[in-house]
């Protein structure tokens, strides 16, 4: 497991509970979720659809308040958007009326600070987007858009990167490439990453730990340690250990759903 072991976790989620008020009554999205995330760790959150993964992540980012419980970043409660936190959203979420350069400048415009061009150019270089600054999002492929979104999130050097199913819309090959890219950049920068994903493979490839949430209301069902050496290769992904871990996590997720829908035990549905 990588990451410096300090006594205090970088990001601490304590009894996070969130109730949404909807037309059809109150909806308990997440219920007493507690996770400690150490500095420099990559932690994935997996779980069945609609289990409150995004809600949990948005609470960590300060975009949402919690109904009960709290989120602490370096010991201080997170009450609103925080400059130390970077977000990567579902889909690339680039602004279509701005070209790539203007999209990457967007955070700095909002914050009223000057972008570090040297750092941004280095990032663009690493993700292979140098020379694309004048292109508009519609002129870029899905993978390129998501890489641009990654550069935008890292451009202001956040210490925590929260990724909300960032590569869900990409094809399998582009996705693997993005995973390698994230690991590569993460190995070189002291960033703590929390990643929501639907892909257990992606979670295993990237994470130091995997948090499994139960179906709604989302509760922390289990936390798995993933102790493969880094940088991880695709060969690791075809080992027996990964296979067993994948199955264990699948069973964890599917098992919860089975109890909910009372499916016959003989049927073994594939996880999402």
């Amino acid at each position: 497991m990588t990451g410096e072991n300090t006594d205090q976790p970088k990001l601490r989620v304590k009894n996070a509970t969130k109730v949404y008020q909807t037309r059809s009554g109150d909806l308990l999205a997440i219920d007493r979720c507690s996770v400690d995330i150490r500095a420099g760790e990559i932690v994935s959150i997996v779980g069945p659809s609609g289990c409150g993964k995004t809600t949990l992540l948005w609470s960590m980012s300060g975009l949402h308040g919690l109904t009960a419980g709290e989120v602490l970043l370096g010991g201080k409660p997170v009450t609103g958007p925080n400059p130390e936190i970077g977000m990567v959203f579902q889909e690339a979420n680039l602004l279509p009326w701005r070209n790539l350069d203007a999209n990457i400048n967007f955070p700095f415009e909002i914050k009223g600070t000057r972008p570090d061009r040297v750092w941004i150019d280095e990032l663009l270089n690493r993700v292979g987007l140098e020379g694309f600054g004048g292109r508009f999002p519609r002129e870029l492929s899905g993978g390129m858009q998501q890489r641009a979104a990654l550069v935008r999130a890292l451009s202001y050097k956040p210490s925590v990167l929260l990724m909300d199913e960032p590569f869900g819309a990409l094809d399998a090959f582009t996705r693997e490439e993005m995973n390698r890219l994230v690991e590569e950049i993460w190995l070189d920068t002291p960033t703590t990453i929390v990643l929501i994903t639907h892909s257990i493979e992606e979670a295993i490839f990237l994470s130091d730990r995997i948090v499994v949430l139960s179906s709604r209301p989302g509760r922390v069902a289990n936390i798995y340690d993933v102790n493969f050496p880094r940088p991880r290769s695709l060969e690791i992904m075809s080992t027996k250990e990964v296979f067993d871990l994948t199955n264990a996590i699948k069973r964890e997720i599917v098992g919860k759903q089975q109890s909910r829908f009372a499916q016959p035990a003989a049927v073994q549905p594939a996880a999402e």
């Binding site: 975009l63 958007p81 400059p83 970077g86 959203f89 979420n93 602004l95 909002i110 914050k111």
Partner: peptide, 20 residues
């Protein structure tokens, strides 16, 4: 998504209006 993006950088209501 786009409004959340602006908010994640700490955008004010005014900034969200003009920039998003």
């Amino acid at each position: 998504g786009k409004i959340a993006l602006a908010r994640s950088y700490g955008a004010s209501t005014f900034q969200i209006f003009w920039k998003v």
